[in-house]
Simulated scan of single mutants.
Amino acid sequence: MAVFIIAEIGINHNGDINIAKKLIEIAKEAGCDAVKFQKRTIEKVYTKEFLDSPRESPWGSTQRAQKEGLEFGLADYQEIDRFCREKGIDWFASAWDLESQEFLSQFNCKYNKIASAMLLYEPLLQAVASEGKHTFISTGMSELTDIERAVHIFKEAGCPFELMHCVSTYPMDDEDANLNRIKMLQDIFKCNVGYSGHEVGLAISYAAVALGITSLERHITLDRAMYGSDQAASLEPAGLRMLVGAVRKIEKAMESCSFSITPKEVSISKKLRAHYLNND
């Protein structure tokens, strides 16, 4: 089974549909299977006190201005939907509240995503599971009992899903990757397990592929120096191309498991062993 590679655009578009479209094109050209966004209803996710608090950003001097500046509306998502269809790449988004999930459902995307931050929000899990779409469930910031509860909700609803091992630090230090949890999740839940990475570089993602993940999600950006909290943990275009190319090579390298001599080795064996095998 080929690893399903997701290019997480998230909010790295900085509220600019043209940046979003460039990132979609980059993901498609690199060979990704899908791009992913994030959707929030600002007033549902944040308190008024928080939104009114100060924060300097390209959009103003309050948290509200910053959050609203990063949020795409209906016209933007209609253009994303149209553009992804034109380019031939799937898209979906992680909702951070029930209203956002309802908003996203109008686009009839193939997939849903539960962000790590939303794993404990059971009403959202139930709403997503009721749609019956294949759902990627990230497990960052969660205990085993939290994951068990989420899995139960999706199994009860008969909704297909896979877990995604995740460590919710941005960027993640290599020593915190805890990649052995991938095998633990596979053994405990008897389901497919992916990896959502926030590390700098590619080595950890390669190791996750070698451990048998079924999906891989990495944030992407035009330039890590751009404004935004996720940029430092994102891949630039060249890094994304390297990632996809290497993942496909790793898949080929792990296709077989045999102790027999391979057909391509037969002629080499005859040549290199001839000095003693032909003298019997």
Rank of each mutant, 00 (worst) to 15 (best):
T262Y: 09
T214R: 09
E251L: 08
R181C: 10
H198F: 01
K271G: 00
V209S: 00
A203R: 15
C191Y: 01
N192L: 05
T221K: 02
A203L: 04
M242C: 07
A208S: 09
E175R: 14
A207V: 10
H198C: 03
G194W: 02
M184L: 14
S196H: 04
C257F: 15
L240Y: 11
G197Y: 04
H198L: 02
D230Y: 07
L235R: 02
L222Q: 06
T169G: 06
L243R: 05
T169F: 14
I182L: 12
K249P: 04
K270Q: 12
K183T: 12
Q231T: 07
E265D: 13
E265C: 13
L222K: 05
E251W: 10
E251I: 07
T214W: 04
K183A: 12
H198D: 06
V193S: 08
E265H: 15
S215Y: 09
S256N: 13
R248A: 00
S258N: 14
S205Q: 03
S168T: 09
S234C: 12
K270H: 10
M242K: 11
A238T: 14
I250P: 03
K190P: 02
L240C: 13
M172V: 10
Y227W: 13
M242W: 14
I204N: 01
I250E: 05
M254C: 08
L216F: 03
V247C: 11
D176A: 15
L179R: 13
G239K: 08
V193Q: 06
I188N: 04
S234R: 07
R241Y: 04
L235A: 05
V247F: 09
E236L: 13
C257R: 11
A177Y: 03
K252A: 14
K252N: 07
A203Y: 00
R218V: 03
S234H: 14
T214E: 00
K249D: 15
Q231D: 05
R241P: 04
Q231M: 12
M172I: 06
S205K: 03
V193E: 02
L240V: 10
F259R: 02
L235I: 10
K190M: 00
P171A: 06
G194N: 11
P237N: 08
S269C: 05
T169K: 06
T169M: 08
S256A: 12
R248W: 13
